[in-house]
């Protein structure tokens, strides 16, 4: 046999099919090309912009700052571990000398790193979001079930829905300072202000979507409920809630997206620890690294927002009765 033909045959069988190649191309290569293009434009564009804090950071500088932030986080962890080690050693020594000696345990005064700020932000946004959900879903169900309640609440919802968090914040701040008075507050005032602002802004999509979902229940199912004379509670539990779940989750996803956006603004202005404050502090700091660090925060905010949305989707496919439904 001609060796050239043999090689060609081998090549043909080894090469995977055209269809697979296309699928791989679509799934991986195209997004990768898009990403690379974006990085290129960013890199070139950044070189053209000179700010008072130096050149606008390109992808390389941002990656550098990311490494710096990671290193700072590790250093802080080490400092904290070393502090407790020293304290333990000191106290043990004291107790060995005199078992009745009075020993003091101090908390390490940790300087919050970028990653600590992320955790703080997540706690704040989740608190606000859960508070909003706890208000919005029951109210949404009531509005959906009762035309009277809908007519009564609709104007209020429509007026408050478009209000920007920045407009709420001064009012919320003043009210929280006036109402939440305590000598030894369990929660910081700035935390409460941020949470309340987040709640006020992300309440509406969940409420409206729940109401629409509840109001559009299949008439036949409502007739079933009437023929069976189901009680109000059973009616809501077995008929209303399951039918409204898809709409409810649409609302929840919108709400969580808004909550995360609002939180950054609220943290900036309320000076509540978190990503918003991190950005603001870097801006005020004005070192040559600041813009790069802010860029890291911007990308992180986007990435976390994406993860939050995915988490809700996962929850939806877990809660939803219709397992075949396509969620996206």
């Amino acid at each position: 046999m001609n060796p050239a033909i043999a090689i060609k045959q081998k090549w043909d069988t080894a090469r995977f099919g055209k269809a697979e190649a296309q699928a791989l191309f679509k799934a991986l290569l195209i997004p990768a090309v898009g990403l690379l293009l974006f990085l290129g434009v960013w890199h070139l564009g950044a070189q053209q912009v000179d700010t008072s804090l130096g050149q606008f950071p390109g992808p390389v500088e941002v990656k550098e700052q990311w490494n710096n932030l990671l290193a700072e986080h590790r250093a802080e962890n080490e400092r904290e571990a070393a502090f407790y080690e020293r304290q333990d050693a000191r106290n043990e020594k004291k107790l060995a000398k005199d078992p009745n000696a009075e020993v003091r345990w101090r908390e390490h005064n940790r300087r919050p790193t970028f990653f600590d700020q992320i955790i703080t932000s997540l706690i704040t946004v989740m608190t606000g979001f859960f508070l909003a959900t706890a208000i919005a879903i029951p109210l949404g169900i009531c509005i959906g079930l009762s035309n009277t309640a809908y007519r009564a609440l609709n104007p209020i919802i429509q007026i408050f829905k478009p209000v920007s968090p920045l407009a709420w914040l001064p009012l919320v701040t003043m009210v929280v300072s006036a109402v939440y008075v305590s000598d030894d507050p369990m929660l910081a005032k700035s935390f409460i202000t941020s949470v309340v602002t987040v709640t006020l802004c992300c309440l509406w999509p969940t409420m409206i979507n729940t109401a629409v979902g509840v109001a559009s229940i299949n008439q036949d199912l409502q007739n079933v409920s009437r023929v069976l004379r189901l009680g109000w509670f059973t009616h809501v539990k077995t008929i209303v809630l399951p039918s409204a779940i898809p709409m409810m989750f649409t609302g929840l996803r919108l709400s969580l997206g808004i909550a995360w956006m609002v939180l950054i603004a609220a943290e900036m202005l309320a000076q509540n620890p978190g990503l918003g404050k991190f950005v603001w502090d870097e801006f005020q700091n004005g070192s040559s690294n600041s813009l790069g660090r802010i860029c890291v925060a911007v990308l992180m905010i986007g990435f976390i927002g994406f993860l939050l949305d995915r988490a809700l989707l996962l929850l939806q496919s877990w809660v939803n009765w219709d397992k075949s439904a396509v969620v996206r």
Partner: peptide
């Protein structure tokens, strides 16, 4: 159209 609750 039967009107069964699809989640049960």
């Amino acid at each position: 159209n039967h009107s069964l609750l699809p989640w049960l």
